[in-house]
Design a protein around this nucleic acid. Structure first.
Lengths: 159, 159
DNA sequence: GCTAACTAGTTTCAATTCCAATTATACTTT
DNA sequence: AAAGTATAATTGGAATTGAAACTAGTTAGC
């Protein structure tokens, strides 16, 4: 006989509410300061870091849905923060890069990102931060593994 | 001059994608095995753990939106997994509790939850798990603190 | 070099989520 | 006890999201 787990002790739940709290707070900052959504911010961050990319590359680097990437790109283009230039190697895609105004905003965005990170993890030692990072990475890898097979109905894999 | 942070090293981003991966995997299991959404599952988990509650109490305990709670409750009621009984103390609300069939499902659900938790955190030592838990909790508390004040436009709080 | 299969990007549609308004009941003040 | 305020639950509508369909261009096999 197993004891019941209160929801609050369930790690995936704790992970979820913590992530939502952090994401929500950060989304609020970006909206207030720059009028950017999270997908838009992520695309800006990657473009500023890597130079011009295709949407496909952006999808890979941000781990976002290609529709989300496409919509973010459209908005950034409409706002004049990014621009498309033809891709000589592949007529289906374009290279998307930051404009001057996009680069200017990127220069303001990254300090805010760093400040948010600093605040959220204030009171953590460098060791704790790198441990946290490592744990997250391992969890993610583990879920990737799991994704291939499914838990058996009868015994829930406890066998 | 600050170095740029690649998105992949940005902790809130790592937290977000890890949480999404875990939530997605778990949602898939609940859908497959029980036809339950995550909000529905959470309500079931809390009801099974605490006995009958009002929607207000469910909202507090699950940290979900009251609309999400309401709709989850409606679905559970329609499926005969939960039932409402009048609340003598307050005519506006009802006590929502699991039915026999709900309790039966709860009995199957919790082992699946534990198995998922075990799998996602397979390879973690008990120490690492409790450290992870503690880190999540501290992050969440920290964000709660932050929520009261806002970062100043001019200096991003670095001042 | 033509056809078939594939891929990048876009659009559409349906589901979900989130906010705001509504309803019904409860409290509070006079 | 009447009027006004507050709160639990619900509903409706707007915005967001994701899956699948669609378009245009590319690659591979013959």
């Amino acid at each position: 006989m197993q004891p019941t787990i209160p929801l609050a002790k369930f790690l995936p739940y704790q992970l979820s509410i913590t992530s939502n709290a952090v994401s929500g707070r950060i989304a609020q900052e970006y909206r207030q300061h720059f009028g950017l959504s999270v997908p838009e911010w992520r695309v800006m961050a990657v473009l500023g870091d890597s130079g011009a990319l295709t949407q496909r590359e952006l999808t890979q680097r941000t781990l976002m849905d290609k529709v989300a990437v496409n919509r973010a790109c459209k908005v950034l283009e409409e706002r004049g923060l990014a621009a498309r230039t033809p891709n000589a190697q592949d007529g289906r895609s374009h290279h998307l890069g930051l404009t001057d105004s996009g680069r200017t905003m990127h220069g303001q965005i990254m300090p805010l990102a760093q400040e948010m990170e600093r605040r959220v993890f204030a009171g953590f030692s460098p060791d704790e931060i790198s441990q946290f990072r490592a744990l997250l990475e391992r969890v993610r890898a583990q879920v990737g593994e799991l994704d291939s097979d499914t838990i058996d109905s009868d015994n829930f894999g406890v066998g």
